[in-house]
């Protein structure tokens, strides 16, 4: 259903966008909270990377 080009449409689009933004950013936050687990896979050494080119 297309959003109507009136004030109701503006309110609806704003409400959906604001809530969805929270959900998605929150989801990114959850993924980032799991990032320390990556370190269990191993360690990437800065000096080794710099020397390898």
């Amino acid at each position: 259903m297309p959003i109507q080009d009136n004030l109701n449409g503006a309110l609806l689009i704003s409400a959906i966008d604001f809530v969805l933004s929270f959900v998605i950013i929150g989801g990114i936050g959850v993924v980032l909270a799991l990032f320390p687990l990556l370190n269990r896979l191993g360690k990437v050494d800065d000096e080794t990377l710099k020397k390898s080119h």
Binding site: A10, A15, F18, F22, I25, G26, I28, F35
Partner: peptide, 25 residues
């Protein structure tokens, strides 16, 4: 990446987008 719980503020601080959108309408 270090403070994942603070990223929610990246959504919270965008209320202005919608206030301006409704104001423009």
């Amino acid at each position: 990446i270090a403070s994942p719980w603070l990223v929610i503020l990246g959504a919270a601080a965008h209320l202005g987008i919608f206030v301006a959108l409704i104001g423009a309408k």
